[in-house]
């Protein structure tokens, strides 16, 4: 299915895979790209060498375009920003801030830039800096979240900017893709569903958590420290919530309590100390499939629902 997004990126289906830290590596990114979506490698807090290696590995696994997600608060952001330009990756998505200062160098390298935004003001700011599209991510998503929901955020961002808008947060099947189109988006970004893709190298325990989750299984913690994240409820998140509510518990210790918890979930499958980030649609994710099977299923449902619909997307 062709939309403004597929034309911009030169891909078959308007689906971008979320840049999930500790999870989105060359294996998942290449699988999504081979299936006609846009796979993304997460640069998370990694250094330049790891990112370069992953990009090169991904190139051996797919000849389709793929991207790198750059977390702007990473201590290695400057060097990683250079690596993606040197490697001339097709697409960069960014999270946790305003990437304006990198736009010139990335455009010179021919990179398509798509920041994740959680408000209209940030969308306008990055549009002015010269980015190609934005991903408007609502708080239904897993990981770092803003307050606005996808339903409220996407149409307001669509009205605020003139560049293509991709919807994210709460999207996991064809119905939600069509809903995103109705809100004015021309594509979607999905993370949670791809967590259980066969090519996803996340720990088996993480996949089990997602497969077992129901609609009310996720919660948001970390508001007190100014970086709220959505994760599947576990003894870890419950304990975090308790400490967070205890005003006598110092911020520094709370910060310490969170360190390494995502790695423990994603890599070690540690169900006691891990933080299993996932979005609210985890309850809809009930089976492991290949990335290609997921995308085909989603697009078949999307196209069926779009029959006779004359929106321009």
């Amino acid at each position: 299915m062709q939309t403004k997004l597929t034309k911009l990126l030169g891909i078959r289906h308007p689906i971008i895979q979320g840049g999930m830290a500790w999870i989105a590596d060359a294996s998942l990114a290449s699988a999504v790209s081979n299936a006609g979506g846009l796979g993304i490698i997460s640069a998370m807090n990694a250094g330049a060498d790891w990112v370069r290696e992953e990009i090169r590995k991904c190139r051996t696994m797919t000849d389709k375009p793929f991207g790198v997600n750059i977390m702007l608060m990473s201590p290695h952001v400057e060097e990683v920003a250079k690596v993606v330009a040197e490697e001339k990756v097709a697409v960069v998505t960014t999270g946790a801030g305003n990437p304006s200062r990198f736009v010139k160098a990335w455009k010179e390298a021919g990179i398509i830039i798509i920041p994740v935004v959680a408000s209209t003001a940030l969308a306008k700011m990055v549009e002015r800096a010269g980015v190609d599209a934005v991903i408007a991510e609502g708080g239904e998503s897993g990981g770092h979240v803003g307050d606005l929901t996808t339903m409220a955020l996407v149409p307001q961002v669509v009205d605020a900017v003139h560049i293509p808008v991709v919807a994210a947060g709460g999207i996991g099947d064809g119905r939600s893709v069509v809903a995103a189109f109705a809100l004015g988006a021309c594509g979607v970004q999905m993370g949670t569903r791809f967590l259980v893709a066969k090519e996803c190298t996340v720990s088996p325990a993480y996949k089990q958590k997602v497969l077992a989750a129901k609609d009310i299984s996720t919660m948001v913690t970390g508001r007190r420290l100014g970086h709220p994240v959505r994760a599947i409820k576990t003894s870890y998140t419950n304990q975090y919530a308790k400490l967070e509510a205890d005003s006598n518990y110092p911020d520094e210790k709370l910060e310490e309590f969170g360190v390494g918890s995502l790695r423990k979930a994603a890599k070690d499958g540690n169900v006691d100390e891990g933080c299993f980030l996932a979005g609210q649609i985890a309850g809809m994710v009930n089976k492991e499939q290949t990335a290609a099977e997921m995308i085909e299923e989603i697009m078949a449902q999307t196209e069926k629902l779009m029959e006779g619909v004359k929106w321009e997307v």
Partner: peptide
Amino acid sequence: SLDKVDIVM
């Protein structure tokens, strides 16, 4: 952070 972006805009 979102407030600050909004203020600058």
